[in-house]
Amino acid sequence: MGSTDSITFIFFNAFLANNFVLAMFLGLCPFLGVSGKLNTAVPMGLATSFVMLVSSVCAYFLNELLVAFNIEYLRLISYIVVIASAVQLVEMTLKKLSPALFRALGIYLPLITTNCAILGLALFQTFKEYNFMQSLAYALGAGAGFILALLLMAGLRERLDLAKLPSVTQGAALSLILGGLLSLAFMGFAGLGAE
């Protein structure tokens, strides 16, 4: 096993050096949509990370099955069904535990299904042929990276609400430019060991 296969390396690679949001452009919809306030960004990040973990584990075993039966062309369809079920699970749990939070997240909660970070994670771990522990580390790293990006963005945007801005820059354009600057900063982590 080389140094690039070690579990800590995979974790930090997905967490910082190849951050899912800022370096690989996965999961931008919630990144731009829910990052307006810190108190919705945190639960959204946690919910997404949980779905990532569940679907990563399911995808690992599912892939073993698909390979065993020689039906890899069904991979995409079966992964998406697993993810949709995991999201449904989170939605039901959250509705039971915290109805207020459930309402605050609104449409973005069912939309976790179409969050490309989750399908991306499942596909990448298959392409890279990670074993079970490696997949787990990859999912944890990606989830932590997603929360980190969401938190940074929400913090910045809360501060910017108080700033005086020209009217043209309000809305999505400003968020994108902020994202660009964050992404520039994250490129500094590339020295930790990109692929």
Binding site: L22, T169, G171, A173, L176, I177, G180, L181, M187
Partner: peptide, 22 residues
């Protein structure tokens, strides 16, 4: 051509369209 460029160029286009609209 690196990741930050994507964010910045799209941000730039959006600013341009917003400016046209105003």
């Amino acid at each position: 051509v690196l990741p930050p460029g994507g964010f910045l160029v799209l941000g730039g286009w959006l600013l341009f369209f917003e400016w046209l609209k105003t």
